[in-house]
Amino acid sequence: MDLLNTVLQGVLVGGLYALFAAGLSLIFGVMRLVNIAHGDLIVLAAYIAMEVIKLTGLPPLAALVFVVPLMAALGYGLQRAVLNRTLGGDLLPPLLVSFGLSVILQNGLLAAFTADSRKLDAGVLETASVSVGGLSIGLLPALMFATAVAVIAALQFMFYKTALGRAFRATSDDAEIAELMGLDRRRVYAWAMALCLGVVAIAGVFLAIRSNFDPFMGPGRLIFGFEAVIIGGLGNLWGTLAGGVILGVAQGLGAAIDPGWQILAGHVAFLLILAVKPRGLFPRMDG
């Protein structure tokens, strides 16, 4: 029963990792960009939520009403002002510029909020749980997982069933020809980044409710998201959810053996899958 419980908690935490990963997967799919500052943006969203809550007194999840549009607007601006200038086939510029952004965000947050760790208080939501057949399911982890499923389903629908998704796919296939259909790639990419940071906002708020956060925890979140993407298979959003779940379960099992093994066990699971199935478990896209 203990083992089953550990696995279940791991599955639910996997939802959070899938939220870290979904945006990463989306922008890689649309513009082949790997944003090293992705994790730092998740942490930024947590701090923005903290400030919004201070100003409005809203509970954390309700604060998303402000945090999501704010982050989306930031994503649109960031893409137009900075990241679009780095895209042109060469690998280095986007990588190095986003690496620079990561350092700027970490130190900017440090300057603004000090290195103290913070947490968002979601009240009773954090402790409430239901008991199902001897297993205790926390309300917060369950909500996190359900949100991840909903977000991925929504992204999937957007990508394959809407005009915006069509524009994303066309620009990803052949940006030059997509221009001739009236799709300005600079704008298409900016919309993709806006959407990505909208998801990042949700991930950031859940992160901040679930655990303490500080200005330097971004790279760790980037790595979890990245591992979920690779485990699941590039370009497959449902695969990303599976990747997050596998990572969560591996970490849970590792922690059950020895608390020091939690993160390491996740990395080892990732490396094992990389060794056995380098294209991930459910690959879809080439590239």
Binding site: R169, A170, D173, E176, I177, A178, L180, L183
Partner: peptide, 22 residues
């Protein structure tokens, strides 16, 4: 290119270059 199409200029590109995921 995103502007000329609105003015009524269209290209049928060499090698067709259809969008493969559409």
């Amino acid at each position: 290119g995103a502007q000329t199409v609105g003015l009524g200029i269209a290209l049928v590109p060499e090698g067709r270059r259809l969008f493969k995921s559409l």
